[in-house]
């Protein structure tokens, strides 16, 4: 299968030609397959946000190429808007972009910019709102009356309503309480499963990445440090710690058990898998 997003020697320099020019991305070569759920981790300033804002052409590469659906997105700068609809990008704290009088109108902003007819817009708004768990009585209320977590979901629905083929989210759960986090992330996961949309999720929470991602992209110092399946990435705990990151708590427990002399696999990163592993071992030893 052809990669849905592909970067070739992607480099970005902020303030090029100025004395304070800083390289934010250095020779990034990655491929993301259609239908994947990719997690992006990396310490602050590693280039995660800069990288994802290249996917829909908000930032233009200083050098190198970005391909979406096998097309160079900057081949014709006049057509860059097409890629904005193809790659839905949810920025950090997206609730600050809300502006319309009602929730429904705000969610409709993206589809309306696509030039769809009213019936289609209304349908898309409904579907997006439903995915984000927004009850029907919210639709005619002002987005500014809602709580922080609800506003966040309205903003995400605003991007979902464009029905992008790739959904990119920059820390969609930042600053929410644990319940809000789980709600939003599981809604995204459900959207991913039911529509087959490719999802790229940036997060600082190893637990979240471990729970949802198929593959993990690790950024460090403006470069790609690792890009592998979730199990392989979290099996390399020492390397992750070196990069100023961590591994999920459950992986930490297994690493510690191994250190204590237990012969156990350490590619464990989710709770159900861990429980299975332990039961398996227990059965082998005849404890159970």
């Amino acid at each position: 299968m052809a990669a849905i997003i592909k970067t070739e020697h992607l480099t970005h320099v902020y303030g090029e030609g100025m004395p304070d020019a800083t390289t934010a991305l250095d020779d990034i070569n990655i491929e993301i397959e259609e239908g994947e759920f990719v997690g992006v981790i990396g310490s602050t300033g590693s280039g995660k946000s800069t990288l994802i804002t290249h996917f829909n052409g908000i930032l233009k590469p200083t050098s190198g190429k970005v391909y979406v659906d096998s097309r160079d997105i900057w081949a014709d700068p006049g057509k860059i808007r097409e890629f904005r609809f193809l790659v839905g990008l949810v920025f950090q704290y997206p609730e600050y972009q809300l502006f319309e009088e009602t929730v429904a109108k705000d969610i409709a902003f993206g589809p309306r910019n696509m030039g769809l007819d009213e019936a289609e817009i209304a349908h898309r708004v409904e579907v997006a709102a439903q995915f984000c768990g927004l009850p029907a009585e919210f639709m005619e209320r002002s987005p500014f009356e809602l709580s922080g977590g609800q506003k966040r979901r309205v903003a995400i629905a605003g991007v979902l309503a464009m029905q992008p083929r790739i959904l990119v989210l920059d820390e969609p759960a930042a600053g929410l309480d644990p319940e809000g986090r789980d709600t939003i992330l599981s809604q995204i996961k459900r959207f991913h499963k039911e529509t087959g949309t490719t999802v790229v999720l940036v997060s600082h929470s190893m637990e979240d990445i471990a729970k949802y991602a198929d593959r993990v992209l690790v950024m460090d110092q403006r470069k790609v440090a690792m890009f592998d399946t979730t199990a392989h990435v979290f099996a390399q705990a020492p390397r992750l710690l070196e990069l100023g990151l961590s591994v999920p708590q459950i992986t930490q427990i297994f690493l510690r058990l191994r250190e204590m002399g237990l012969d156990i696999d350490t590619d464990v990163y989710t709770m159900p898998y861990a429980v299975n592993k332990i039961l398996e071992r227990a059965r082998e030893k005849g404890v159970l």
């Binding site: 804002t53 829909n56 908000i58 808007r81 904005r84 609809f85 839905g88 990008l89 949810v90 920025f91 997206p94 600050y96 972009q97 902003f109 993206g110 910019n113 696509m114 605003g158 991007v159 464009m162």
Partner: peptide, 16 residues
């Protein structure tokens, strides 16, 4: 800085 962020967010939703 804020204007820049908001403009990018709206551009991502296809604002011209």
């Amino acid at each position: 800085e804020e204007t820049d962020k908001i403009m990018n967010a709206q551009k991502a939703r296809g604002a011209q």
